[in-house]
Design a protein around this nucleic acid. Structure first.
Lengths: 194, 194
DNA sequence: AAATATATTGAACGTTCATTCAATATATTT
DNA sequence: AAATATATTGAATGAACGTTCAATATATTT
C-alpha cells in the first residue's frame, strides 16, 4: 500500500545531475546543494535517496564504470575478427571520449586509494574489461584467424596501452597530434595480436 | 634592511606538511587549518607564503612532479646501456612507489582537466621524461649497443606502458601478483628496445 | 473516505572552510 | 637605539558545507 516508489528514476536523475556538475566544476566542488538546485529539488530529497554524499559518490562510480562496458557494444558480427576489430576501434577512437569524461573518471579513481569500496569497484571493472577482450581474442584463435599464445596476457597488455595512452593524450590539446599519437598507440596494440 | 626572508624554507616546510595530509586524508580534505595545526603554526602564515589555497596546490604539484625526475638518478655509468638499464629498473620497481604517493599524483592530475596551469605542468613533465629517456636510447644507439630506429617513439611507448601499468597495479593488493605483473610489463617495455 | 507508504519541502543545526586585516614580535641594518 | 622589513599571531568574517528532523503533500490501497 501507499505511494509508488520513484526510487530508481529519481536516483538516476540525481546521479546524472551530479555527473554534469562534476564534469564542469570538479568532484570537490559538486555539492548536494548545487545538484539540488540544478534539477530544482530540495537538497533533503537527495539525502532521502542517498544516505550521504559518500553513497552519492558510489552511485556516480557505478554510473561511470558501467559506461566503460559500452566499448563492447558492437554489431553482432558472425566473424569474431570483425567484432574484435570493432571493439579496438571503439577503444582507440573518439567514441571513448564521448562515453564519459576522463576528468571525472580520474577524480573517482583517485578516491580508490583511500576508499576500499571504490577501489574494489574499479579493480573489478578493469578485470572485467580484460577478461572480455581476452575472450574475443580466444574466439579469433578458434577460427584460426589469430594465433595468440596467451589471450589473457595479450588483453592485459592492450589495456595497459590503452590506459597509458589516454593518460598522456588527455593532456594533448592539438587535435592533429592527438589523432596521430592515438594511431601510433593503436598500431602498437595491434602488434600484440600478431 | 629588515629581517632575513624565510620564504623558501618555510614554503617547503608547508608543502611537505600539505603533502603528508593529502597522502593520508586526500586532497579535498587537506585544509589550510589542518596543515597549520600539523606543524603548529598559524593558518594566516600559510596565506602569507602562498596567496591562496590554489597557489598552495601549485606548490604541491611542483613538489610531486620534481620527484618523477629522480627516476633518472643513477650512478654515472660510462656505459650508456648500464645507465638505461638502471633507469628502467627504477621505473619498474619499488623505487617508484617510494618516490611519491600515487593517490596524490592522480588527485593532482585530475585537476589538470580543469586547470590550465596544472595541465601544462603535467604535460611538460611527461614530455621531459620522454625526451630524457629518448636521449638515453639514442646514446645506446651510438655505441651500437642498441639499434632502435626511432628513440623518441620508443621512449614514448615505454612511458605509455609505465603509466598504464601503474594505473592497474595501483589497484592490486596482492604483493606476489603485483610483482609478477610488474615483471611482465617491464619485459614488454624491454621488447620495444629490440 | 480512511489508512498508509512514499515524495517532497523547509527550516535549522553545528562545523569547517578560505580569506582578511590589524596587531605584535623578531631580526637585521644604519 | 632608531628604523625597517619580514615573521607570526589572533580574531573575525561570511559563505558554504553535509546532515537532521519534523511537517506537509501526494499517490495508492482497502
Amino acid at each position: 500500500m501507499g505511494r509508488k516508489s520513484l526510487k530508481e528514476p529519481r536516483q538516476k536523475e540525481i546521479i546524472k545531475a551530479f555527473y554534469k556538475i562534476v564534469k564542469k566544476e570538479g568532484l570537490e566542488n559538486a555539492s548536494i546543494q548545487k545538484i539540488a538546485e540544478s534539477i530544482q529539488i530540495n537538497p533533503s530529497l537527495i539525502m532521502h535517496y542517498f544516505r550521504s554524499r559518500e553513497h552519492l559518490v558510489y552511485g556516480l562510480v557505478e554510473f561511470i564504470l558501467d559506461r566503460w562496458l559500452h566499448i563492447f557494444d558492437v554489431k553482432d558480427a558472425e566473424d569474431p575478427m570483425d567484432a574484435l576489430s570493432a571493439v579496438l576501434d571503439n577503444v582507440f577512437s573518439k567514441k571513448w571520449n564521448s562515453l564519459f569524461d576522463d576528468g571525472t573518471s580520474y577524480s573517482l579513481y583517485s578516491l580508490a586509494f583511500r576508499n576500499k569500496t571504490i577501489r574494489q569497484r574499479y579493480k573489478h571493472l578493469l578485470d572485467t574489461l580484460r577478461q572480455r577482450l581476452a575472450e574475443m581474442i580466444a574466439a579469433c584463435n578458434k577460427t584460426k584467424q589469430l594465433t595468440v599464445k596467451d589471450p589473457a596476457a595479450a588483453a592485459d597488455i592492450i589495456f595497459v596501452l590503452v590506459d597509458g595512452a589516454y593518460y598522456y593524450l588527455s593532456l594533448v590539446d592539438d587535435k592533429a597530434e592527438y589523432d596521430r599519437r592515438l594511431a601510433v598507440y593503436k598500431q602498437h596494440a595491434l602488434k600484440v595480436l600478431n
